[in-house]
């Protein structure tokens, strides 16, 4: 059984090796650089307590904490934020005129997804997890993953990400 120093060393090595990848996923989940850093920081803090059990294969657990924390943060934040009367402008309508690139379109389209739909999209189509793995990460059923993915893709297409092939 490794000692505390060994665990700390392996954790810090993991952070050095995987922080960039985690930040990329977190950025897709949050759409904001600061929020992404904060999300990764929180997820890593949370896994310290269980590092002794997951050190050999930490990615699935860290990913799970990251994704669930992202969804839960949105839930906690939702009741504290003031709703605006006017919906955000639709990017699609402006896209042709302004020539905004696909990256901006996708980011704003992702922003309009429900957090769990967004998480499903990121896990399925960026992390390339299977439906079952996505369901396990988010703690939902495979059927829910399917329906959330279907609805999210429809929403993305509606938001003019229509060149996308899933």
């Amino acid at each position: 059984m490794p000692g505390a120093d060994d665990l700390q060393a392996s954790f810090e090595a993991y952070v050095v090796a995987r922080r960039g990848a985690l930040l990329r996923t977190a950025y897709l989940l949050t759409g904001d650089a600061h929020a992404a850093e904060d999300l990764v920081q929180t997820a890593l803090l949370k896994v310290v307590g269980t590092w002794g059990r997951i050190a050999d294969h930490p990615d699935p657990y860290v990913r799970r904490v990251l994704a669930r924390e992202s969804v839960n943060r949105w839930r906690r934040r939702r009741w504290r934020e003031v709703a605006t009367e006017e919906p955000p402008e639709r990017v699609a309508a402006d896209r042709a005129q302004d020539g905004v690139d696909d990256r901006m379109v996708l980011r704003q389209a992702l922003d309009r997804l429900a957090p769990r739909q967004r998480a499903v999209i990121v896990l399925r189509y960026y992390e390339d997890l299977t439906e079952a793995q996505t369901a396990e990460v988010l703690g939902i059923s495979v059927g829910t993953v399917k329906s959330q993915a279907r609805d999210a893709l429809a929403r993305l297409r509606l938001e003019a990400v229509d060149t996308v092939r899933a």
Binding site: G20, L23, T25, Y27, A33, Y125, D128, T163, A166
Partner: peptide
Amino acid sequence: MSTLHDLLSDLADDAPAGRP
């Protein structure tokens, strides 16, 4: 035509680098 994975990867390039 890009795949959604490609688009997401492109978007993830905007992620902050940060330091441990």
